[in-house]
Write a protein that binds this DNA or RNA. Sequence first.
DNA 1: GCGCCTCGTTGACTTTTGTCAGCATTGATG
DNA 2: CATCAATGCTGACAAAAGTCAACGAGGCGC
Lengths: 326, 326
Amino acid sequence: MPIRVNDQIIHKAAWLYYTHGLRQDEVARRLEISRASIAMYLRRAREMGIVTITTSSELFSSDVLARELEDATGLTTAWIVPEDRQAMNPAAEVPEVAASVFLELINKGDRIGVAWGRTVYHIADVMPFADLKGVTVVQLCGNLGAPYSYRPDQCTTEIARRLNAEGVNIYAPLVLSSERLAEELRAEPVIREQLATISDCRLSLYSVGGIEDDSHLVKCGALSADEMHAMGERGAAGVIAGQIIDHNGQWMDCAHNRRCISADLNSIRAIRKRMLVVQEENKFEPLLAALKGGFASHLVVTASMARRIMDRWSRDGLGRSAPAKP
Amino acid sequence: MPIRVNDQIIHKAAWLYYTHGLRQDEVARRLEISRASIAMYLRRAREMGIVTITTSSELFSSDVLARELEDATGLTTAWIVPEDRQAMNPAAEVPEVAASVFLELINKGDRIGVAWGRTVYHIADVMPFADLKGVTVVQLCGNLGAPYSYRPDQCTTEIARRLNAEGVNIYAPLVLSSERLAEELRAEPVIREQLATISDCRLSLYSVGGIEDDSHLVKCGALSADEMHAMGERGAAGVIAGQIIDHNGQWMDCAHNRRCISADLNSIRAIRKRMLVVQEENKFEPLLAALKGGFASHLVVTASMARRIMDRWSRDGLGRSAPAKP
DNA sequence: GCGCCTCGTTGACTTTTGTCAGCATTGATG
DNA sequence: CATCAATGCTGACAAAAGTCAACGAGGCGC
C-alpha cells in the first residue's frame, strides 16, 4: 500500500501523539492543521505500522495463551497454570488456581452445582474459607455407595462448609442396578425436584473423567473395566457428572447412562458459568469431548494442555466463536 | 507472589481492547463490570507494560542534516531532534528519541552495555516496555557509592526491567581510593570476567560527561572540582563510562582513570553499535572528543548540536573517518 | 464489636476522538 | 479553457474514552 501523502507529517503527528502524549487538538495546533486531519493521519500511522501496539507475550505468556484459547474455543475465560521454570509439578497447582477462581465467580445468592471426582475433591480441599450466606451448593450427581476416597456428597459438603453456604445433597445412588429402578427413582418428587433445580444454577464446577481402566467409574465399581472398554469401542470419550459422553460431548444412549441418577446434561449446559477443571495430562481426549459438548464456559488447565487443545482445535479446523478483528 | 487473579482481568481487558479492537463498553459488557473500570484497567495495562505503544523513530533520521552529519563524521546513523518552531525544549525530547531508537537497534539475543549518567537515566525512564527475553543488559562501569540520584546500577536495572531482559550489574565501586586496590579488584575473577564480556556486546548506550564543575564525577565526589580543573589543564575533554578522555578521545593516563573500575575504552570501541546520546548544549567539546575517539556509531543529538559539529568538523578539515557502513 | 481507613467500583458528567459530507485544490484530459 | 476525477482538508456532529465524587466492601487496630 504505497499511499504516501506526506509521511513526514504522519510520522510527526504519530510521534507527538503517541510518544509525547499530546492530545489531537494540541498536535493539530502545533502542526497547523485541522484536528480531523490529525485523526486521519493517526489512523494511517497505525495502518502503516509507524506505531505498533503490542501486548507483551513473553512476560505474560500464560495470559496470552489463555486469551488465544478463549478466542479459539469460545470460552468465556480460561486460566492457564504455567509450567514453572524450576520443576514443581504444574498440575499440582491447578486445584489452587481453580479454587481461587471459583470463589471469584460466585455471586451473592447463587446456586452452585458441584460434581464429583478426584480433581473436584482436591479443589474442595484447598478452597479458601468464605462467608457466603445465601449461596447454595447442590450436588450434580448421585452418590457412589462404594467406600471410595472422594464421594460426591463429600465434595458438595466440604465446599459448602468452607463457603459457609448451604449444602444440598442428592440422596440417591449414582448408578442403580436396573434402568427401571433408576427411572422410578428419578420420578420420585424429592429427587425430581432436586434434579430440576439444577438448571437454575448460575455456576457449576466439575472435571471430566477418563474412560481408561483407572477411571473413576471403574475404580468405584460402577462399571467393570470390560464394560468401560466396550463403551470406548462404541465411541465413549469421557465422563461428565457420572455420565458417559462421546467424542462430540453428546450423551451416549447406553445402559450405564440410563441407570444413572445425575443432572441432565442439558441442564448442565444451561448453566451460564460452567467451570471445567482438568489436572491430568492424560485427560486430553475427554477434555476435548467436554469442550465440544459445551460443558465449559470457564476452564482451568495447565499450559501444556492448553497448547494441545490449541493445536488440535486448529488442526481440526474447528470454528471460533470469538469476535473478529475489525 | 500469589496467584494473580487480579492481573488476569487487566490482561484480558487489554487483550480484548487492543488485540481485538473491541470498544470499552463492549469489553465492559463482556467482563461484566462497568466501563469506567475498563478505562482504569487499560491505563494500568499501559503503565504496567502489558501493552506497549511504540513509534518509529524514522522521523528523526530522515532529516537532511542527519545525512550530512553521517557523511561528514562517518557515523552509521544519526538522529536529529529538530528545534521545534513552537516552544518545547528540544533537549527534553532527546531521551525519548534515544529510547525509541535504542529499542529498534536491539536484536534478539544481544548483549547490551549501558553506562551511566543523567542522560542515560532519563532514557531508561522513558524506555518503552518490551519483551526481550534472551537479551542481557550489562553495566559498563562500576558503581558510585555516593547518594546520587542516578546510580549506574539503577540505569542498568531499570532498562533491563523494562525490556524484560536480564540485568547484570558490576558489584564494584567506580572509583577506588588507590590505584593498587583498583588493580587488585580488576584482577578479581568476578570483576575481570564481567569486564571481559563487555567487548562481546553488540550494542552499547552512553552519553559523554563534561569536565566542568557541575560534571557528574565532581558532583558525585569522585573527583574534586580542583582536580577536575587540573585535568582540564592537562587536556581532558570529556568523560566516557566514568573515565576521562582527551580532545582526541584517547584514554588519559591519570590517577583518576587508573583508579577506575570500568569498561576498557578499547572494549567499548570494539562494540559494533555504539549509541551516543547528548542532550545538553554545553557538552559540545566532550561530544567532539567522543566522536574523534570513535565512541559513536549511532548518535542522537539536537539539531543545533549537529550543526555545530558540522561546522567544526569542516573547519578543522576532518574528513569522514571511515566509509565503513556495514 | 466498632469505628476508621483503604481500595476498588460505579454512574454521571466532561473531554477527546472518530467520522463523513461537502468544499477546495490540483492536475490530467478533451 | 472547461470539465472531470482524485485527493486532501475541514466543520459539525456522533461516538467513545477519560474523570471524579460518592459509595461500599474488606481489612485492621482499638
